[in-house]
Design a protein around this nucleic acid. Structure first.
Length: 518
RNA sequence: GGCCCCGUCGUCUAGAGGCCUAGGACACUGGCCUUUCACGCCGGCAACACGGGUUCGAAUCCCGUCGGGGUCACCA
């Protein structure tokens, strides 16, 4: 049984790079009929773990990355929180000590630092001398009599080579002599990450460790612990980083200011901000940031689109297939086709996937996704009345591909506003209704509209064509004034759709109001 | 700095010695469609980091150089 895991720290947010790691683990497990485990790498010092964990759990859930064991769902190897497994780690340390794979070390930070500096001066690689290593009870007593405190260090091999067959990187070799005697237990008795990590992976029966490349250099010490403890070695797959837009640096939450200088990135944020502000969602950089998954949920992106895009950041099926459903990804994903080089995050391409996935949605689903945004800003009641619902349906249908994320529905508020409260884009109003003959044409077209037999798209269009022919004008001369009168704006849905949705009464009322104002 | 990883259009990638005068997608751009916006359609721009080998033949193999990144904690 293949078992993979994702092990986030409760940091309060789900990072986009973390999503990619979680996704690959999840896809691999699901595709192989295996299991995906969520383990929480918290430490006992951390407070508010639940609070800091919730956004991560929510984010994963929203993306549809579900876990077979872990927080909330539990599982046979519980607990899944590192902070509750300290005893396991300490037992492991005792085993390492007993078998001679680790030792108590009484060096102080200063003494270690001195050795390090000496090595630096002599331009040789640093390796701890083990001067304060205690392997017997007498030695321990002696050091302790000097008031020293012990950490536990790994007693790493001094020769030989570790050969790692990484599933994405291939054969990677490390010389043991270059590895340090890493600390696995602090003076206060708590254990360090690498030890905990190895013990947990073993306890949870993880078969494939799929993680970011930054852990590649850490693997030798983990392998050492694994072997010292007599555990089976899991398969490793080290994923390339998700890099910043336009660079090879690791994507970071903290560098939003810098990314904002990237035009595409700025556009993504700007678009999102418009929607977030409308619905009264905080837009401060700490929580509202495209590096954090919550951003996309707030603005109304589709999880499928994010998943599709993220999957292609470092993986491909072939030379042409790009659009994948979740199920297709599960079926087609393989570690063999993960690329080795880092992939930079491209906001424009993400948007392209969003556009496409949203386009393909059935009308009903678009309605369900967009309605909450109208409710949040109070343009419709919650839940909408029957009339409002009809209006939503009509607007979503007429909007066609203009809605790319669910929040885009807010670009068409005019239909939901009272006729007498419609605001006008002054520049557009001036140009279309006050300058030239816009007002006069509108006034005369108003009578045609009043007389149209049935207020549907076909008849409205016919009426306008007739009007244009009679007046010997170009269609633009009348269309734009009508649009501004109806919506207050110079851009929007198809004009005949707009008229039909508003209906005769409201359309005429809006036109009259604009005429009176012009 | 030591060690490790990586290096094909601006970006994501295809490419496992001849199918490559390097393919697809996004972006950009010219045009068409059109009542605005959006969609859609047609076209264009644009890359094998560099230098040596090996070979009849190299983006693909080897060596070196350069560049980028990661890692070297009593962080995770």
């Amino acid at each position: 049984m293949i078992r993979t895991r994702f092990a986030p720290s409760p940091t309060g947010y789900l990072h986009i790079g973390g999503v990619r790691t979680a996704l690959f683990n999840w896809l691999f497990a699901r595709g192989q009929g295996g299991q995906f485990i969520l383990r929480i790498d918290d430490t006992d010092q951390q407070r508010n773990v639940d609070e800091a964990l919730q956004p991560i759990l929510d984010g994963l859930k929203w993306l549809g990355i579900d876990w077979d064991e872990g927080p909330i769902v539990g599982g046979p190897y519980a607990p899944y929180y590192q902070s509750q497994r300290l005893q396991r780690y300490q037992d492991a340390v005792q085993k390492l000590l007993a078998s001679g794979h680790a030792y108590y070390d009484y060096a102080t930070t200063e003494e270690l630092q001195a050795e390090r500096e000496a090595a630096e001066r002599e331009k040789r690689p640093f390796r701890y001398s083990r001067r304060f290593m205690a392997q017997t009870a007498e030695q321990r007593t002696k050091f302790e009599a000097e008031g020293r405190q012990a950490v536990v260090r790994l007693k790493m091999p001094t020769q030989g080579t570790l050969v790692l067959d990484d599933l994405v990187r291939g054969r990677v070799e490390f010389e043991w002599a270059r590895e340090q005697d890493h600390v696995v237990q602090r003076t206060d008795g708590t254990c360090l990450y690498h030890l905990a990590n190895v013990v947990d992976d073993h306890d949870f029966q993880i078969t494939h460790v799929i993680r970011a490349e930054e852990h590649l250099s850490n693997t030798p010490r983990q392998v050492f612990i694994i072997e010292a403890l007599g555990y089976p070695r899991p398969a490793y797959a080290h994923l390339p980083f998700v890099a910043e837009p336009g660079s090879r640096n690791k994507l970071s939450k903290r560098k939003l200011d810098k990314y904002l200088k990237n035009r595409d990135f700025a556009q993504l944020v700007e678009h999102g901000r418009t929607i977030a502000e409308a619905i009264g969602h905080s837009t401060d950089a700490d929580s509202f940031n495209p590096v954090i998954v919550d951003f996309y949920r707030t603005v109304g992106y589709l999880p499928e689109a994010i998943i599709n895009y993220m999957a292609l950041l470092g993986w491909s099926l072939d030379d042409k297939t790009e659009h994948f459903s979740r199920q297709e990804l599960i079926e087609k994903f393989s570690l063999e086709r993960v690329v080795k080089s880092p992939a930079s995050f491209d906001p424009k391409k993400l948007q392209a996937f969003e556009d496409r996935h949203f386009q393909l949605l059935p009308q009903q689903q678009k309605i369900e996704l967009t309605t909450p945004f109208l409710e949040k800003v109070g343009l419709v009641k919650s839940p909408p009345t029957a009339d409002e619902q009809r209006m939503i349906d009509a607007v979503v249908a007429a909007a066609r591909d203009r809605i790319k994320v669910a929040g885009d529905i807010l670009a068409f508020p005019d239909f939901f506003l009272k006729d007498e409260e419609l605001p006008y884009d002054e520049a557009a109003f001036e140009k279309c209704l006050r300058a030239g003959e816009g007002r006069a044409l509108l006034s005369s077209f108003r009578e045609r509209l009043a007389a149209v037999e049935s207020f549907d798209v076909d008849q409205l269009e016919a009426a306008m064509k007739q009007f244009v022919a009679d007046q010997q004008i170009k269609i633009g001369q009348i269309i734009h004034p009508v649009r501004v009168a109806l919506t207050g704006k110079s851009v929007g849905l198809g004009l005949f759709d707009t008229l039909a949705i508003l209906g005769r009464e409201r359309s005429l009322r809006r036109i009259d109001r604009a005429l009176a104002r012009a």
